[in-house]
Amino acid sequence: MRREIRLPFDPGTISSLEAYDRVLLSGTVLVGRDQVHQRLSRLLQDGKDLPVPLQGETMYYMGPSATPDSMVIGSCGPTTSARMDRFVPALMEAGLVATIGKGPRSPQVIEAIRRHGGLYLIAFGGCGALYATKVVSQHILAFGELGPEALVRLEIRDFPVIVGIDSRGNSVFA
């Protein structure tokens, strides 16, 4: 019932996925939310290098709770994607292929996904404890001073999502 997919995405996998497909992701993703998006966008606008290349990457909209000693990460469910909408076209232009978050997206995001052949994946809102058990490792890539809002690299295993917008621009929120 659930399709298992390795990250990073290859183009063939992306085009084979359709809205509502249930997927288990394994591999690495970037993690960033409001402040990271603002900073990455400014760097792109100023023509400067990004702390990490976005080519082929998947961005998870998330800011974790504190990490208990015995665990890899604290509670780590998705945040509302809509707040990141205005940054998406530029980041996809820079190579980002997929985003993971919760809730609906703007028509501009749907159009960017269609144009670049990308994906929007929906993680289960509020299920932070569950997602903590799907994270294998994390390390901070940049903006550590932002605390829970830093840019982070996450390795995940069997991380459950549903395809929200597929590469043809079909959306579950239509």
Partner: peptide
């Protein structure tokens, strides 16, 4: 998720 929060003591939601 609620079962995991109960078992681990992790916040059910990171927010």
């Amino acid at each position: 998720n609620l079962a995991i929060a109960d078992a681990t003591g992790l916040p059910m939601c990171q927010d």
